[in-house]
Computed example of a mutant assay.
Amino acid sequence: MNSPISISSIPHLPLFFSMFLTIYFTAHFLIFRTWTPKLRPEASSCLISLAHGTPAVLLASNALISNPTHTFSSPNTDSQNTVLEYSIAYFLMDLCHYLIFNPKDILFIGHHLATLFVFVTCRYLVGHGAYGVLVLLVLAEVTSFFQNVWTLSNALRAESKVAAQVFDVLSPPFYALYSVVRGFLGPVFVYRMVGFYLSGEADGVIPRWVWVSWVSVVVSAILVSIVWIWNRWVDLYRERIDVIDKEKKVI
């Protein structure tokens, strides 16, 4: 059995963390220095999220394609471990952000801790199962770019007409994409994942408590995502109804 820790990949985690730390500080003290103290941390968090999301999707997709014979219990390849470390570094950095600026946001802090548990155990504890974890990473981050633009425009729309317009135009397609990915594709893939693990094919390399923990984290994240996007659709519907009512009153 290959060692789950590759000597050649050990420097990647501190390197990636230093990169995200630099991006965060650059955003906070240079790019968004004229923004209000309330918005600067959130904008900086969005910037490191942008630096993680799309690159993580591309890196994970490449790592998956380069190993077409993978299963849910296959040994992690070096490229898959690199992607895991890239994501571990991002979530560690963003977790620091929340602990400092939003320590009461238990939902996001819990999400980051749970995600880190999955990535860390996959990368450093069992050294297997990166296939399923990275597919879920792709599904989670494929909407990252749109979500961060949406978040920034939402934060600024009260002060900027351009931001308000971006928010209004972006919301429906973003909600639709998010609904398909988190509400359909994610659950279908998790169903396949659970079926594989229940068959016992991974018992020799991934302890049962590990994959049960992974599935619990993923299912919880999907349920929270579904509730979140449902609330966004409700908000959008109410906003559109309010606009129609105002137009009727003017007429």
Rank of each mutant, 00 (worst) to 15 (best):
S179R: 03
E141T: 07
I206H: 02
L236A: 10
F196T: 12
W233N: 07
L223W: 06
S220T: 15
I222E: 11
V190W: 03
G127W: 03
R192C: 15
V181I: 11
V217E: 00
F184Q: 01
R182A: 06
S225A: 14
F146K: 02
S171I: 04
D168N: 10
V224M: 10
R157Y: 08
V227I: 14
L107C: 13
A114D: 10
V166S: 00
L236W: 12
L136C: 12
Q165F: 14
W150Y: 08
F145H: 02
L152N: 09
S199R: 03
V190I: 08
N148M: 04
F196Q: 08
A155G: 14
W150Q: 08
T121G: 08
L113V: 12
K104H: 12
A130W: 05
F167P: 04
K104M: 13
M193S: 03
L177G: 06
V190L: 04
V162G: 14
T143N: 08
I244N: 13
G127T: 07
D235Y: 09
D203V: 01
V133E: 11
G204E: 08
A114R: 12
V188S: 05
S153N: 11
W228S: 05
E141G: 01
A202N: 09
L170G: 02
G200I: 02
L139N: 02
W230K: 15
E201F: 07
R192S: 15
V205Y: 05
Y124A: 09
